[in-house]
Amino acid sequence: MAIRYARSLAHFEERCAVEEALALVEFLRAHPKGKISLATCTSMHAALLQVILAMRPPVTQLPADPLLAALIGAAATADLIPA
């Protein structure tokens, strides 16, 4: 499966592979307020994780996978803390 883009929300569905990284970057550049939902994401390639860490889009739902949730959760909360 892949990333499904719905207006300003990117749904990660099941396994998301390395090829999606560029499209995700384009999406986030085109939609500065774009959000991502990981509710049904089972795993993603590190390149996608890197995009999320670098561009820090708001994550509406964390994935079920504990490792992914921990990695992305940590990044997302850090973003909410004012400098």
């Binding site: 990284a21 560029l22 995700l24 970057v25 986030l28 550049r29 590190a46 390149a47 994780l49 890197q50 995009v51 860490l53 670098a54 561009m55 820090r56």
Partner: peptide
């Protein structure tokens, strides 16, 4: 990370 809009290369691993 630098500026994510301008010069972020998603295929250069920076992790």
């Amino acid at each position: 990370w630098g500026d994510p809009v301008a010069d972020f290369d998603p295929y250069r691993c920076n992790l």
